[in-house]
Design a protein around this nucleic acid. Structure first.
Length: 586
RNA sequence: UGGGGGAUCGUCUAGCGGUAGGACUGCGGACUCUGACUCCGCCAGCGGGGGUUCGAAUCCCUCUCCCCCAGCCA
């Protein structure tokens, strides 16, 4: 094994290792390298980051990337991370999201060093605006929205100066005070930065800093009727909090010039630095609040926490674990390149985490009755079975076997294709943890549908023993539950929300038409092994051969009922084989 | 067309003038009382063209493609 020379990043004493060894450290990317360089240059004693959600919706897995980065970096370097609600627009924000966002953050396992709100700084922001006016770097403009827009120019044509651009300082001061005092109606005046109407960067063409909005604010009440815009609130909030590294997504790249301009022209206690990275995109879903809201509004999903949604509350209800999400984020990495991550990668993360920790049980989702013809009626026996195949610490439990059982409908075929080694007429299969059975006949209903399979079992094949004598081997193993004491349950089979990888690829098409009609299949007549009548709502179970399942929150007002959500299927190489057109078949 | 960004296996991602590596997927195989897990193996990439250099994914020039920006949203 070669001795690896520590990189400058590894050598940084400020960095602490993250507790989870399976997680790639948040500093292992270009942002971490930048922080290392800043620290090495003595720019900061410690780093401060912030996670700045707008309280206007629920957090989704895309936010998890920012959360993981900001909180992870802070903890790794022994710094601090603030949770700051960006509540500068009372017209579209709602206090109910504040609690929900905090809950999601806690669930993901993060604790903020400080809780702040952009609205905490409204007074200071006002003073900073006055400072700008006094330096002749800002002015009050009474023009209409349309006039200002027309003067802004376009991508290829220059903007024109506002006729009010050179208004005297004293006038600006008086007007701005009047704005604050409520002397004007919404939209009558704005405060603009005085930068450069000919800038190729549209954000520098005298951007609006303050607008008039007579709207009750969840925190400041009716104290203010003017509210700062993102560009004026965000960077200044960062500086006021001593943020050293202000991480945001790529679409704010063009705003960095304005971010820096404001820092240059204002007297502030710190000099934060904005660094952009690319958003997380996942295929087979959409990741924008606006689009997700449409799904909720149209009733395509059950709500923001529908288990098919990529929201953190949806993933939580589905049964995903915080660890699996953090690990996933760490795996996809942080860069500036546009990306589209495969949903399979996320699914794989949760499988990997659940495999060693999920207790196994047997459950039949789509039951087909199986009768053991040579098993005495009224008899039964108890089989002791392991709760985890690799880990004996999980212990064992006892399950009942008797003459009538249920097996999975998919595990029986009248006319099996090649390589199908489950049950079929005349064929043998093992009932997991029990005996080898042979199908001797089937019972059909009036429609020709098989409603019962009749089998004979071989008592000598207990404990995994292969049939004696003739050397025949039984490869197929199927799960089953005992009919008499099985626990009826409803099982919800979740699949990908969309049936195409990128529902937004065709800009002219309505993305909702790509919704996967089978993203939720409800199976109301599933049968679980008897032990599951005492199932734990915190435990993720593996239903053997089917996947990982998590208990749905109890139904209100109805009789108690077991409901399970499928988190993810097990990998299924048979599905690939079965789907493949047989080369042999003619 | 102005400005700002981005192009490395199918998908993510390392690389920072010196053997293009990892993860996921896929495909084979071994093992198996889960067609799971685990293990082994394989396939697969530097957007194109020039140049500098003993040597280029990396430096220079050029072309192409993709994304973002014209909210009193964030």
């Amino acid at each position: 094994m070669t001795d690896s020379t520590p990189t400058s990043a590894d050598a940084n004493p400020n960095r602490r290792e993250t507790a989870e060894t399976h997680e790639i450290a948040p500093s292992r990317n270009f942002i971490g390298r930048q922080i290392d360089a800043d620290l090495a240059a003595g720019k900061h004693d410690a780093i401060v980051t912030r996670f700045p959600p707008e309280p206007n919706g629920y957090l989704h897995i895309g936010h998890a990337k920012s959360i993981w980065l900001n909180f992870g970096l802070a903890s790794e370097y022994g710094g601090a991370c603030t949770l700051r609600f960006d509540d500068t627009n009372p017209a579209r924000e709602d206090a109910k999201f504040i609690a929900a966002i905090q809950q999601d953050l806690r669930w993901l396992g993060y604790r903020w060093s400080r809780l702040a709100y952009a609205s905490d700084y409204f007074a200071q922001l006002y003073d900073l605006a006055v400072q700008l006016i006094k330096k002749q770097r800002a002015y009050v403009d009474p023009q209409s929205n349309a006039e200002i827009r027309a003067q802004r120019g376009t991508l290829t044509t220059l903007g024109a100066n506002s006729p009010y651009r050179d208004r005297p300082v004293a006038e600006n001061l008086a007007l701005f005070a009047a704005m604050k005092n409520g002397d004007f109606v919404d939209g009558e005046m704005v405060l603009r930065a005085r930068i450069d109407m000919a800038s190729p960067n549209l954000n520098l063409r005298d951007p609006i800093l303050y607008r008039i909005l007579h709207h009750h604010h969840a925190r400041s009440g009716d104290q203010w009727c003017i509210y700062p815009l993102y560009d004026f609130a965000h960077g200044q909030g960062d500086a006021l909090e001593g943020v050293t590294h202000s991480l945001c997504t790529l679409e704010f790249e063009d705003h960095r010039a304005l971010y820096d301009w404001l820092l240059d022209n204002l007297t502030l206690p710190a000099r934060p630095r904005q660094i952009e990275f690319s958003r997380l995109n996942l295929n087979y879903t959409v990741m924008s609040k606006r689009l997700l809201a449409q799904l909720v509004d149209h009733g395509d999903v059950d709500g923001w926490d529908d288990p098919r949604m990529p929201t953190l509350c949806g993933l939580r209800r589905r049964g995903f674990t915080p660890d699996s999400i953090r690990r996933f984020i760490s795996l996809v990495g942080v860069t500036r390149s546009h990306n589209m991550i495969e949903m399979g990668a996320l699914e794989n993360c949760v499988r990997q985490e659940l495999e060693p920790i999920a207790p196994r049980v047997m459950a039949v989702i789509n039951p087909l009755k199986l009768v053991l013809e040579n098993y005495p009626e009224g008899d039964s026996e108890l089989l002791e079975v392991p709760n985890h195949p690799q880990n004996t610490n999980f212990g064992t439990r006892k399950i009942t076997l008797s003459r009538e059982l249920y097996i999975e409908r998919d595990d029986f075929m009248e006319a099996p294709p090649r390589k199908f080694f489950r049950l079929a007429p005349g064929r043998e299969v093992r009932l997991r943890y029990a005996f080898v059975v042979q199908c001797c006949s089937v019972v059909k209903d009036a429609h020709g549908q098989v409603v019962e399979v009749r089998c004979r079992y071989d008592p000598a094949t207990r404990h995994g023993k292969q049939p004696q004598g003739d050397g025949r081997k039984v490869k197929g193993i199927i799960h089953w539950v005992n009919a008499e004491d099985a626990a009826p349950a409803e099982v919800r089979l979740y699949d990908r929300l969309f049936s195409c990888a990128n529902p937004l690829a065709d800009k002219d098409a309505e993305f909702r038409k790509f919704l996967n009609p089978e993203s939720l299949l409800t199976r109301k007549h599933a049968m679980l092994e008897a032990s599951m009548s005492a199932a734990d709502s915190k435990t993720r179970y593996q239903f053997e051969r089917l996947g990982y399942f998590f208990m749905e929150r109890a139904r209100v007002g109805a009789e108690p009922k077991l409901i399970f959500n499928r988190i993810v299927t097990l990998r299924d190489s048979w599905a690939a084989t079965a789907a493949r057109p047989s080369r042999q078949a003619k």
